[in-house]
Amino acid sequence: MTKTTPTALADEKIDTERRRLLAAGGAVAVATGIILYGAGAGARPKGQPASSAQRWGMLIDTNADPSDWDTAISACKREQGWGGGNNPATDPQWIRKVSIKNKSTGAQATFPVMCQHCANPPCVDVCPTGASIKRADGIVLVDKHICIGCRYCMMACPYSARSFVHEPVHNQKPHMPRGMGTVESCTMCVHRVDAGLLPACVNALNKKGSKAIIFGDLNNPDSEISRAVSAHVTRRIREDLGVEPGVHYKGI
């Protein structure tokens, strides 16, 4: 199930970076994908609460093939049932491609930004009803049943990670109730993680042989993500704010 299918490859633009990756370690990448799939998450038995023994996080390689980000975004849309609107200013975007350019050097990068799953999330602090929550394992969520749609969390989020549902929603997924008048954002695919699966974006990337996003338990020193963040200098967006995001970036 983690093998890169010919169709997927045909759909994707194969650039130099991809060739290098596949040539150097395609088989290894696929194998690692399987390992991560099994050991990265681990299903949580029903009725057992999320535990602070885990700290789920992501590592995003900003030097990856830019087409990877389209793969990740499409997978997120498919999984969670958002997208497809015609109003760019009001349509929800749980994950988006952001391009940056250094004003003095001209260096550029493009990478995805979504909810950064902060350890000290401002959205949770400001939410009047407690609809914005952080689970013990670090995943930040909106409880759609008690969100009153005040949007204070959107004012507070340093990453513009949240969207307000401005229009009636259709074709909802059973695992992801959405509602007009409430706020939503990346859930780190909590429904999949709890079932021992990878988030949809990471899974889609692994399927095409890309390691552009690594998901895993930052508390587990043996996890792939822990080894990666200890081997490379990674950055988190606006680290100066002290919100301790769970999403790391390599290469910016």
């Binding site: 949770v124 602090d125 939410c127 009047p128 009803t129 407690g130 609809a131 009153i148 005040c150 706020v183």
Partner: peptide
Amino acid sequence: DLGRPDRIDVAMLEQNFKSIFAWNI
């Protein structure tokens, strides 16, 4: 103007005391 003004009772019953909005209630 709330997205869900019908849930104003929720704002009264469920409160996060770290929120300045909840204090304001």
